[in-house]
Amino acid sequence: MKKVLLMSFIMFLIVSVFVLPVQARTAFEIRGSDTQVNLTANLAEVFMEMNKDAVISVTGGGSGTGIAAIINNQVSLANSSREISAAELAQAQERGVEPVRIVIALDGLSVIVNEDNPLEELTVDQIGAIFRGEITNWAELGGNDQEISLYGRQSNSGTYVFFREYVVKADYSEDKMRMNGNAQIVEGVLNDKSAIGYVGVGYTAEDGKVRDGLKIVKVAKDADSPYVTPLDPTNVADGSYPVARPLHHYSNGLPEGMVREYIEFVLSEEGQQVAVDSGFYPITEEYREINRKNLAW
């Protein structure tokens, strides 16, 4: 009996000395953007497949939540679909945190309407006017005589901030419904014939095809430019799709150890293929350059 106790005690010591520290070193958390949650979960899954001793947990909550978590030093990586703001950067530095920006994929932020809407294309200005509440009926744009219902994200969302900054350029209409996630916006637009909404391109497709009942609007920079679709990767890569944006990880200082290995994987050919499989697009040379500079690799 004593022997058994002694043995189990020794086993316990061995486990705590060798196994636990290894686990502590290789488990880390990524938190933030709801747009990037599926993408990051897929990346983490493939990475964990390759590195059996890595444990990555991915959670959402919105880009603002992710950046707040990196400022408070609660997570290893933040997911953010917008760049960190000057105020947030100052807050981080105040606490001794040095956020490093890493671009992991590109998103053609898609403007979606119900399939029954006859409208095919819009300019950025028109979309802005719709979301500012200046255009309130589809008839004004040559569509059916229907009140437009607006679907968008809540203020903790990076997509909310990005879209306001680059498309709406003013406050959103007070009639815009603030939905809890990309998936809810898609759900809303599917059920509402007079809806318009904005979501990450990764949420518009199912098994490589646009979801039934959904239509992705072709968007032009201005009335003189061609109308292009975000579904064609080249439009996003060459910048002809006007509401394309980079998706980020933010780390505190240069990533080290397992986090570094993970980032290397994300930026590798294989990692970028995972991004494509998740419905997003690989990063271009322009962003690779930014990554090289920020990461000093």
Binding site: G61, G62, G64, T65, A68, A87, Q154, S155, N156, R178
Partner: peptide
């Protein structure tokens, strides 16, 4: 509920 999570 929506805003408390991200407010500085």
């Amino acid at each position: 509920a929506i805003e408390l999570g991200e407010v500085p």
